[in-house]
């Protein structure tokens, strides 16, 4: 579904509903991180949030 959004600058941005930010959960067996939907990690998992903030 298209949900038109007008930002304060007067420019329109249409957003398609899509997946939200995912989290990264550490897999101690592989030593890698794995993506999961935010809020679905198991208790005890090491969860690192994906962030859109922060830059070089």
């Amino acid at each position: 579904m298209n949900e038109p959004v007008i930002n304060p600058n007067g420019r329109g941005v249409s957003t398609q509903s899509t997946s939200s930010l995912k989290d990264l959960v550490f897999n101690p067996e592989t030593g890698d991180f794995e993506q999961v939907e935010r809020g679905t990690a198991n208790e005890g998992d090491t969860v690192t949030k994906m962030t859109e903030d922060g830059f070089a």
Partner: peptide, 24 residues
């Protein structure tokens, strides 16, 4: 795919001309 569409939608509102602070 990595950072999600929320960041994409917010991108047009970003102020990139920050003060003398580095972005992080």
């Amino acid at each position: 795919c990595l950072v999600g569409s929320r960041a994409h939608a917010m991108a047009t509102e970003e102020i990139t001309n920050r003060s003398q602070l580095p972005a992080y």
